[in-house]
Computed example of a mutant assay.
Amino acid sequence: MKILPLYAVPQYGPQVTDWLWQAFGTSDSRDFFASIVATSQREGEMPLTFVAVEGDKLVGTVGLWRCDLISRQDLYPWLAALYIDEKQRGRGLGAQLQQHVIEYARTLGYPQLYLYSACKDYYERFGWQYIGDGLDYPSKSVHLYRFTL
């Protein structure tokens, strides 16, 4: 498996858009996710999208974004939009994609990385520290995590 920036393999952009829209969006938000994916494909700039590829098959994706939770713009950067193809889950790909973003953020000199999730007990297994709850728009409670680099 290789983890590549999406700008190096832009043919996977439509699939990443569909995954993010289906996993995190609403029926009318595909254009929103298409915009995120389109603007995360510029070399050397954030936001960035990374993809996990086996042969020519897309198996997962993750982002490194300036902001992923509008109510907490004081925190940055964010590991965002971690998604593994349903048929590929249980193989440790989520851990590998997290580690890739952690190492990338470390090389950029960031002291910490943040993420939010509606689920609890997943990210703690990988060294993320729960730091409290936040609000996703408009009023959904989510768990906030920090990873010290």
Rank of each mutant, 00 (worst) to 15 (best):
S27H: 10
Q129A: 12
V16Y: 02
A80H: 05
G132Y: 01
L48E: 06
A81P: 03
Y76H: 13
E124Q: 13
K57W: 07
A38S: 09
S40R: 06
Y123Q: 01
E103Q: 10
S139P: 02
L113I: 13
E54W: 04
T61S: 11
S35K: 13
A8H: 11
D133Y: 10
R72V: 05
L108E: 11
A105W: 05
L75Y: 05
P111C: 11
W21R: 08
L97C: 13
I102Y: 05
Q22E: 15
P5K: 12
E86A: 15
D56N: 15
Q112S: 10
F147C: 09
S117Y: 11
V101K: 00
Q41K: 07
D68A: 15
D136H: 15
Q11W: 06
F33T: 11
G44A: 07
L79M: 12
Q22M: 09
K120C: 01
Y114G: 00
A105C: 14
L149F: 10
Y145S: 05
S40W: 07
R146P: 01
G109K: 08
Y114C: 01
L69N: 09
F147S: 03
E45Y: 14
Y83E: 02
V37F: 00
K140A: 12
V51N: 04
Q11K: 13
S117I: 07
D133P: 01
M1F: 08
G132R: 00
E43D: 13
S117Q: 05
Q41G: 07
L64R: 00
R89N: 12
R91C: 10
L93A: 09
T17Q: 07
K140N: 10
A23P: 03
V16F: 02
E54T: 06
G55L: 01
W78S: 03
P77D: 09
T39N: 15
M1P: 04
S27Y: 07
L6T: 09
G13W: 07
K120D: 01
W19R: 05
Y130N: 09
D56S: 15
L93N: 07
G134T: 08
Q129F: 06
R66P: 04
T39D: 14
H100S: 02
E45F: 13
Y12S: 10
G132D: 01
P138L: 05
E124S: 04
G60D: 06
Y114N: 01
L6K: 06
I102G: 02
Q15H: 05
E45A: 13
H100G: 02
I36F: 07
P5R: 12
Q22V: 06
R146A: 06
Y130L: 08
K140S: 12
F32N: 04
T107K: 10
L75D: 07
L4T: 08
V62S: 02
P10F: 04
C119K: 13
V142S: 03
V59T: 12
T39F: 11
A105P: 08
R146C: 05
L144P: 08
V101E: 00
R30L: 10
L97E: 04
Q73I: 13
M1K: 09
L20C: 05
C119V: 14
L144K: 11
W65V: 00
L20E: 01
G132C: 05
G90E: 11
L82M: 12
Q98N: 14
K140Y: 09
R146G: 01
Y122W: 03
A118N: 08
S139W: 07
S117N: 12
